[in-house]
Design a protein around this nucleic acid. Structure first.
Lengths: 216, 216, 216, 216
DNA sequence: CATGAATGAGTCTTCATTCAT
DNA sequence: GATGAATGAAGACTCATTCAT
């Protein structure tokens, strides 16, 4: 095994990745502060302490910076759901859902600067009419999300934990419920993610009506 | 009563209002098509079949057109909730809530072009961290919304229909649930508003868990 | 003599003149405040308490308002020089010149708001290269001025009071000297016009050098 | 001495300065042709053979281009007066003044395109009432001028060459006299600066009255 | 003739993108 | 590949002028 020829390329790749990440981090901050349209490439470059041209060496358009950010965070968020590779993942529906929701909330909390604006760009746009403005990739992304949520709901229906309503409606409901509390995460700095997850699940499962004798 | 002196001023006011409405209608359509930033004043003027300058005779900035639209639609949406003046408004919590929700869904459906973009401008931003970008008026508007939802929830708690959870959390939950179905309204042309309202309320009240013997 | 047919027309003319004057007065004030380009027809109309359209009933363009003003004030200023009709006008060169200068200074002082900006529009532009921008009428006006000053100077040369220098140079010198003190008039509210006139003439005649034994 | 590291920055600075000068030169010409308001940034850019945006890389507003021009020419004009560093500067009051005036006239002649419009923007506004429109910097500039002229005049009074009149009045008189002949410079292409300077000084010192036996 | 809203040509300014160094 | 100045298309906004009432 000759490692030498590997070394330089590897370093190069690392360097590339560092620039790329620096740009994305800077963009996340600047987008959050000024919104996508209010953010100038110049601002992002300055925040990343690089030159404007360098941004263009890594992304061919401003839009691509946003897309990459959406891609990255979406992927990160979805990774919180996919629990297949976790050994300690609970098996029962509710605790498993709770674990997933808690992880998602934590992730959103960590990147709240970004999620605050992602909303404006259709990340949570749900079933909004696919306007000409929503890029094809955006729609795909939303569809991935939807699929993940639908899978969860279908699991629940299959396991008998959820009422066999329309899976689509239920997945939207789950999304909406989470979103309600995600927004709290965005607003607060040190939100108690665990408690929020519990409340989210509780309301998702049993609603807001006056509980009678049902055991929680 | 001498109506004559009234005539001209009245006509003038009417003319003013007509222009203003034409502009707002055109803006609603253009914003929906291209988004706020993609919409040029020229586009709005053309759609309204007036000159660019005329837009500026009625709104001093592009931003103000959006604001006025938000104002108008927000007010319209809230008007659907305030049921005090309706004689046929049901008295019981659930049917009353259902009626309100149905009216709101219908209103959103009617102005879905607008609500699709209002989303991007914080109308539903909920508790998102009040960024420097959200105008003071925007915050006020969101607060009004919040207050209306909280009032509904508090009614429900008082009447014993809702579990005495934190009113703030419940109002967010109600908002999130509605939003999930509102988005469906936005996507579809002839959505069955009544059915959606029922499903919204049902999920809001009883959640998604498998129903046992509880009477629906 | 039938006065009736005269009455209405006369009143009409008076009315026209009143509007015209109101506009010119307003324009004088607004031009002085904001400069010609900074003054909007709207501003002038407001100051004159009339409608924008009315301004256009009296002047066909914005430029014409300025022109009319220049015309009027130029004429007024020149009227201060032409002393032919005054019975008490001194005959000797120096007192006569002094009287004329004093009257001009007083006139400028009275209309200083206007003269402060007239400068920007070539009223005193003197021999500036006749740019394409200086309207033909403007040049004529300047020429009239020049002619008046030259006449004065030639009088002085003829009477032996002035050194037989180039009449053109002398007239420019007289203009420059006056201008130096006119500017003081513009700055101060209650400038002592008489004293200024005396100083102007004194310097014009004898210069600034140390006086020896010559009787002043 | 290592010049290498210096090279690039030095070249960059030179490049910057070249663009800046190209813009100012173009602006001088265009302003002279069309006046400040009639000059479009586009015109200036075209004349300088650069893009519109480049103008904005060097000046943040159109106003700033004019200001920079005023600054530069004012400084240039004043530099003609400050004779301290000249070895061949005459010591006696009159020849010294004459040298200074000649240099100023030559400078104005050289940049007459500019001075023709500077007039419109208060460069020579003298003691005009400091309107809200005259920028603070403008006033400063005028004050500098005034100070220079006053210093000259005071020198003359101190040396006994000038009558001990009010220094302020005398400095205005000097300015006015010069201005009268400067304007001639502006009009003519190949004006005889030396002769003009002599005439200026002569009139400034001895006025226009008929000379008796006094030795010139 | 007064009125004042409608008109739309005109211009400054911004900023994504390019490219020579 | 980094740099940052040059580029120029694009768009908000102004305001002189028109014209229906």
């Amino acid at each position: 095994m000759n490692l030498v020829p590997d070394r330089l390329p590897r370093r190069r790749d690392e360097a590339r990745a560092m620039f790329r990440n620096a740009i994305l981090d800077a963009a996340e901050a600047v987008f959050a502060e000024r919104g996508f349209h209010g953010a100038r490439i110049q601002d992002i470059a300055e925040r990343a302490r690089i030159a404007v041209g360098t941004v263009y060496n890594h992304f061919s358009q401003k839009d691509d910076v946003l897309s990459a950010l959406l891609e990255e965070r979406t992927e990160g968020l979805l990774a919180q759901v996919r629990a297949d590779d976790r050994e300690d993942e609970p098996a029962a529906f509710r605790p498993r859902l709770e674990a997933r929701v808690a992880r998602m909330l934590a992730y959103v909390q960590k990147h709240r600067a970004f999620f605050a604006i992602a909303n404006e760009h259709g990340l949570f746009a749900g079933a909004v009419a696919p306007s000409a403005r929503a890029s094809a990739r955006n729609l795909e992304r939303m569809e991935t999300f939807r699929a993940v949520f639908r899978a969860i709901v279908e699991e629940g229906i299959a396991s008998g934990d959820l009422e066999p309503f329309d899976a689509d409606a239920l997945s939207r409901f789950l999304g909406g419920t989470m979103r309600a509390f995600v927004l709290t995460s965005l607003a607060q700095d040190g939100a108690d993610v665990r408690a929020q997850a519990t409340m989210t699940i509780d309301l998702f499962l049993y609603g807001a009506s006056r509980r009678r004798k049902r055991a929680k």
